[in-house]
Simulated scan of single mutants.
Amino acid sequence: MNEEDRKQEKQNENLPAVRQPVELIPVELPEPHQRFYDKLRAKIESFIKDKGVNKTVANYILLAPDLFVLLARLIMDKRVGGSSKAIAGVAVAYFIAPIDFIPEALVGGLGLLDDVILAVYALRRILVDVDESVVREHWNGQEDLLSVITKVIKSADDLVGKKIVKKLEELVFRKK
């Protein structure tokens, strides 16, 4: 195994396995979630249009509403255990908190990048204990959820920097 193969293997060891996409079942959001989802998505789309955010970054920011609603639904699902609900709760609170590593109040929609990354790390941790089908049932995004998780994890350092990614990982994966 050459040096390049070792680097690739090390990089992939923390990524979830990606399986072929399956047909996703459309999920209707309950009315309160739909209103929040629509407001957040409209706010993000407006920011992207006004600031001319590049398409790649915009696609990551636009994951925020789908991830937020997914985490909120997991908190309410009786099939999800207490520790997974706690992790989802931390991620939801991080979305809502006015102060985080990249505050939206200071940088606008770009401040959602750290929220998206934390949400993905939380989901990666949740998928250890919760059946994948339960999590997928609550996913309303357009892309396959596991592909989204993999893509965000691979791009996290480039999006927000290694120091912030390390702190976000510590929030989700700290020892008990």
Rank of each mutant, 00 (worst) to 15 (best):
R41S: 12
A86H: 12
P65F: 00
S84G: 01
V80M: 06
T56D: 14
P32Y: 06
F101G: 03
G111W: 13
T56C: 06
V128G: 06
N54Q: 13
S133D: 15
V116L: 11
L67R: 01
A93H: 03
D144E: 15
A58E: 13
V107L: 07
D144A: 10
K49V: 03
I87H: 04
F47E: 09
G109L: 05
G111R: 13
N59S: 15
L127V: 10
L113S: 06
Q34L: 15
S133V: 11
L118G: 10
V148G: 13
V130H: 02
E132T: 14
Q142P: 04
E132Q: 14
R35A: 14
L110A: 07
Q34R: 13
K49D: 10
V130W: 02
V128S: 08
R125E: 15
H33E: 15
Y60H: 14
I48K: 04
M76N: 08
D66Q: 03
V128E: 14
I164Q: 14
L118P: 13
Y121M: 11
N59M: 09
P98I: 06
R73C: 00
F47H: 14
A42H: 05
G81C: 05
I99Y: 07
A119G: 11
I96W: 03
I117K: 11
Y121L: 15
V90F: 07
A64T: 03
G161Y: 06
Y37A: 03
G82D: 11
D114R: 07
D129Y: 10
G108A: 10
E104H: 07
K55F: 11
E104F: 04
A42C: 01
L71E: 05
